[in-house]
Design a protein around this nucleic acid. Structure first.
Ligand code: NAD
Ligand code: NAD
Lengths: 215, 215
DNA sequence: CGGTTATCGATATTTTTATATCTATCACGA
DNA sequence: TCGTGATAGATATAAAAATATCGATAACCG
């Protein structure tokens, strides 16, 4: 496929956000020994419009056959390639609190190419503890750890007040991307990628839906 | 539709998703004793376009003053009202695993009107344990608990395979809304609201950004 | 073997969201 | 007291995304 050779298309963000759901359905077909899947199948499973799915799948570069659909294993390979889940990256987790511990314990990351090389925290009570197989390390050693191991990804689960100071260390250490679960907006140089995950946005939408529904 | 306080508008989802971030900034002004905040201020803090912010704020119904901005406490009240964070709701959490425990430990929910009345799990080893002040209860008692206490909200953090069977119980018990953190798509009657939180979508976007940045 | 039909892929249309432009307002400072 | 300029709010434009339409294809069935 073209993607591997260096030509990088620009994919619409809403489409990228749907890819993991597509992948989940397609994989379930694969496990079931089914060789082809149609856009209609996926749309039905997810409650989407089939044209939207077909357009998304077209962007993956996989060609479908009329009356048959798309080859399951081709789609899986293409989607995993687009979202980068076909290669492995090491990551550090900063802030081994409630949410940080949950992420450390999530088994799904390794299947998606993310492996936690270390977990850090400032809290002396937490340092030395083992959380889901990871020993919590002091912040002091973080910068060197990242630099020496050439870690590119940081998952940030510290309180909002501590976010920027933590980010400054990460950037200084040469981190390439920060997946930020704190509500703070991070100031980083242009070369550093950030992805903000604001769980409270989802709660807000949920509550508004509930209110409008129950009138 | 008419309710006691007035007419319920339809708000654009992207706007709703931004409200929590706005609220965070506005509150920080409030704590700092600042009385007015402008759309430009908020836009600068969040890296947004000021016109977008102004349009969002216009939808809240709060009027601004030229050269001054909007009254901080009016905005806070309006936004909290829109996202329903000005009233309290009881919720149950189902699936007290990694992520479920993290959510139980998150102190931010009570400030947003969500209080966990109970946490449930199937795992006999977990039942009876105390997680962040909540005793884990067996699934057996869940339906009655929800019905008797008239609980309207469920937070779902079970594995994907267990999601639908769990949802069926919740719906049967009369739940009004399900905040779903599993990647499964839930089948519910039309009267039940669902909000799917797919963390892997964020990861996908993050990885694609990383890949495109590093070309 | 030939008609039927589910499906793809392309194109067109509509809707939604973001961004740009313009004018009126009014606090502020000269 | 009088400009000045930051800002709201309205309107206009552009961009993005979702949705609808339609012809071409080829597996399937009789
Ligand atoms: N827990 C949730 O369900 C949840 C939900 C939504 C958002 N969040 C956000 O995720 C972040 C973490 O939430 P949490 O519930 O895990 O909080 P938490 O207090 O349990 O965990 C934060 C951890 O960060 C550590 N920490 C604090 N300052 C640090 C620093 N300077 N350097 C390194 N580590 C530091 C603390 O010692 C603690 O272990 C917060 O920003 C919160 O808003 C959490
Ligand atoms: N942990 C994470 O960071 C994370 C990230 C993204 C998505 N998720 C999703 O959240 C969900 C939970 O993930 P997790 O990491 O907490 O898994 P987990 O295995 O730690 O927790 C799941 C819990 O649900 C319980 N459970 C299983 N079947 C049940 C049933 N039928 N009824 C009630 N309880 C049941 C289990 O006993 C367990 O305690 C999964 O769907 C996962 O895909 C988790």
């Amino acid at each position: 496929m073209e993607i591997a050779t260096g030509i990088r298309k620009k994919y619409p963000v809403p489409m990228i956000r749907r890819l993991p759901s597509y992948l989940r359905i397609i994989k379930s077909y694969s496990y079931g020994g089914i060789e082809y899947i149609s856009a209609t199948d996926i749309a039905n499973e997810l409650g989407y419009d089939s044209v939207k799915v077909r357009k998304d799948l077209a962007l993956t570069g996989v060609c479908g056959k009329p009356r048959m659909g798309y080859k399951v294993d081709e789609l899986i390979r293409a989607i995993r390639s687009i979202v980068g889940w076909d290669k492995n990256s090491e990551a550090v987790l900063v802030g081994t609190g409630c949410l940080g511990s949950a992420l450390l314990g999530f088994t799904g990351f390794s299947r998606r190419g993310i492996n936690f090389a270390a977990a850090f925290d400032v809290d002396p009570h937490k340092i030395g503890m083992t959380v889901h197989g990871h020993t919590v390390m002091p912040m002091r050693g973080m910068k060197n750890f990242i630099t020496e191991r050439k870690i590119e990804i940081a998952v940030l689960t510290v309180p909002a007040d501590a976010a920027q100071e933590t980010v400054d260390i990460l950037v200084d250490a040469g981190i390439k991307g920060i997946w930020n679960f704190s509500p703070a907006i991070l100031k980083v140089p242009a070369r550093v990628v950030t992805q903000n995950e604001n769980l409270m946005s989802g709660l807000a939408v949920f509550m508004v839906k509930m209110a409008t529904e129950s009138v």
